[in-house]
Design a protein around this nucleic acid. Structure first.
Lengths: 339, 339
DNA sequence: CTGAAAGCGCTTACAG
DNA sequence: CTGAAAGCGCTTACAG
């Protein structure tokens, strides 16, 4: 029940001034070793902890960083959050989490809230809506208030803000190159997504890779539509009539769909068809057969973004925006094993 | 670039005292309407926001609550976090997130850290290790410091702390009852988990339900082991020889495994075999066929736990621990559709 | 080596 | 109706 003891109370017990106690605990060379010892012993005894609120007020910092993720149903962002946690702890910051639910409005409310001075900096992966409307004023406003901002993952825009992401074009290029190296010629791309920008980048990368490697770039190999039954039917045809040898799934649904359709046709994975998907580690490895996936290093992304933000917080003077692009890697599970 | 304006500066511009400005902004009836208007207009103009750190120091509260989740790869906890977010926002609190990684040691470090006074309260789902070793001293210590604690989800221990969870026994009882109502007699339980306590509760509930409903309680229907190949083989036998009509999967892996083995035997879901799994919504609905699942209301759990914590923070006097048990519900997807 | 004082940015009893 | 003062719990230049 002992309520927290304060500097003042310690000082009173020891019959010294508050300044002396404060300095002793902060190992100031001004204070005699004996006094330091006495003070520290008593502090230990009472389990004294400086009130962080008071310390922060004095230092005019908060010790917090905010992170806004667009959604949390996706384990990708959960993992990024884990990385943010790691690095923040190391650097002595607490992480305050917000979820924008893919809404610009919500995002603006959050930035408005934190502009009051709750945090020393912000990590954000902008919402779909924000990205679509290209409205980044709330972020610039924050920076005007001298609260540094670092973008992560969704960074396909040029708005002069620090950013950490992955090389989306490169990642699929690598996937195609790998499949090609396995002597696979007919590679299909399946995508059930819409707007998000990443889709486009990946499709471009796919086409480029096919061109460069001398593979067919026939449109029929690219199944991109939100109409799942249609995609399914077309994929079916590709498998049976065209004897497609590999499939790249750009998202959860299409990867799962691909695995499914292949098996319905009694085609073997990976012997007859190989699959690589843009899915998360957990998901990929839980499936049977497990699906080889593109590792986008979410944890590292969170760590790097946090490190970048902390650097900004500590050196607010630097002006040119930084940009870190992580290289993705293919993690091979059942669906790409060699025969 | 305008750095944050303070009360003092506003006062100076207006040629009034700091007190007057503060009172005006807080709509104190002491101040004349004219003055209030003048002050508010200037504040608006300069986009004044009170420094939350200073306000909190004055009020000796932090405005933060901490939440410790054991892991983040599980979307269940991600969803709970979403619920915590919702409710915390409503109540005017910020959420500081920590991840214990299922480690007691890590958990203790976190509670040690927040005992300094970073937060007004703590929400925690204890780590596996904590549960196994039954070491809850760090939580009691926190409460001695008058930082209220509320447990969520993993609450199968009686340690006199507020808690919000689900009725684990009841949930499986309901599942068995449903399957029984569909005229299914042979129901198998598959479990690939170990220690976690929940497993036991569910298995008990299963046995009880079978007894009550006059279904066989033969041990062969309960496949609980970490040895997945063994489980697979036994399940196979149950399906082919015993013609099991329904399967309940207690976790990700076993649910997926069940779905898989059934299909490998060219048995139809849901026509020949129905499946209910303890998996999350996203996962369940992404699969083909989609798997009916037990909804454990993670979002509501987060909301309720937060509401309970806030209540504790506001009324620290109340002593008897509260306990909220949410009723789970079966969400029917493909795998339990009627013929 | 120690302490009194000012101050971080606010709120609020109290006096006028 | 307004303002001076004290105080939340700390740190740190400054004086002694």
């Amino acid at each position: 029940m002992r309520s927290k003891i304060t500097l003042k109370e310690l000082a009173k017990i020891l019959n010294v001034s508050v300044s002396t106690v404060s300095k002793s605990l902060n190992d100031s060379p001004e204070i005699s070793p004996q006094t330091v010892k006495r003070v520290k012993e008593l502090a230990q005894l009472h389990n004294y902890r400086p009130n962080p609120i008071a310390v922060n007020l004095k230092r005019s910092r908060t010790g917090n960083i905010a992170v806004i993720v667009p959604n949390i149903s996706n384990t990708f962002f959960a993992k990024v959050l884990g990385g943010v946690e790691n690095e923040a702890r190391k650097q002595g910051f607490q992480v305050i989490t917000y979820i924008s639910n893919e809404s610009l409005d919500h995002e603006q409310q959050i930035t408005e809230l934190i502009s009051a001075g709750i945090v020393d900096g912000l990590l954000i992966s902008v919402s779909e809506e924000t990205q679509k409307l290209q409205d980044y004023e709330h972020l610039h406003l924050l920076m005007e208030y001298e609260i540094p901002v670092v973008l992560f993952d969704r960074i396909n825009m040029d708005i002069g803000i620090d950013a950490v992401g992955v090389n989306d074009r490169g990642s699929i290029y690598e996937a195609v190159t790998f499949l090609h190296s396995q002597n696979l010629k007919k590679i299909a791309l399946v995508c059930g997504l819409g707007e998000i920008g990443l889709g486009k980048q990946r499709i471009e990368g796919f086409t480029d890779a096919c061109k460069d490697l001398g593979l067919s770039t026939d449109d029929k190999y690219i199944l991109a539509s939100k109409d799942i039954p249609e995609v399914k039917q077309k994929l079916n045809k590709l498998l049976v009539e065209d004897r497609v040898e590999a499939i790249i799934g750009l998202d959860y649904l299409s990867t799962l769909l691909a695995s499914r359709v292949v098996q319905e046709n009694n085609i073997r994975i990976p012997e007859d068809v190989k699959i690589i998907g843009y899915v998360n580690e957990d998901f990929a490895s839980y499936l049977w057969p497990s699906i080889s996936y593109v590792d986008q290093h979410p944890v590292e992304m969170g760590e790097q973004a946090t490190a970048m933000l902390v650097k900004r917080i500590k050196e607010p003077s630097v002006k040119t925006p930084a940009r870190v692009i992580l290289n993705t890697e293919i993690r091979h599970l059942d669906s790409t094993r060699s025969k």
